[in-house]
Computed example of a mutant assay.
Amino acid sequence: MIEPFRPVLSPLMIEDIVKAALLEDLGRAGDITTYATIGPEKTAKAALNSREDGVIAGIELARAAFRLVDPAVVFTALVSDGDRVAPGTPLIRVEGPARSILSAERVALNFLMHLSGIATYTARFATEIAHTRARVTCTRKTLPGLRAVEKYAVRLGGGSNHRFGLDDAILIKDNHIAVSGGVDRAIHAARAYAGHLVKIEVEVDNLDQMREALAARPDAILLDNMGPELLREAVEINRAHGGLAETDYAAAVGRVALEASGNVNIHTIRAIAETGVDYISTSKITMAAPTLDIGLDVEID
Rank of each mutant, 00 (worst) to 15 (best):
R28K: 07
L143H: 08
I187P: 06
L91E: 01
N110I: 00
E128R: 07
L231E: 14
L91T: 00
R106T: 01
A21V: 01
A72H: 13
T139E: 08
A104P: 00
I56V: 14
A36Y: 09
P218S: 15
D31P: 01
I200L: 14
P90D: 00
A240S: 13
R232P: 04
R133Y: 02
I59K: 07
T89G: 04
G262L: 07
R51N: 02
V18S: 13
I14C: 08
A47S: 08
I118M: 03
N263W: 02
E150W: 10
A220I: 01
Q209P: 11
D168C: 12
L68I: 14
L258E: 02
G96M: 01
A252R: 08
R124T: 06
D208C: 13
Y249H: 14
A220R: 06
A186Y: 06
N175P: 06
F5E: 03
T268D: 05
E274S: 10
R67H: 12
L68H: 15
T275A: 08
L222V: 14
D174E: 10
D184S: 15
I92M: 09
G195W: 03
V298T: 03
E299T: 00
A215N: 11
E299G: 02
E212A: 15
I17N: 11
A98D: 01
G30D: 02
L197A: 11
L244N: 10
E201M: 05
A62T: 05
V136L: 15
G82I: 08
G82F: 08
I14L: 09
G276E: 00
I266T: 07
E15K: 07
T33V: 13
G295D: 01
R270D: 07
L214F: 15
L22N: 04
D167V: 11
H241G: 14
A153N: 06
T34N: 11
T268L: 09
A29M: 15
A119N: 03
E52L: 13
T142H: 07
R211H: 13
A245Y: 05
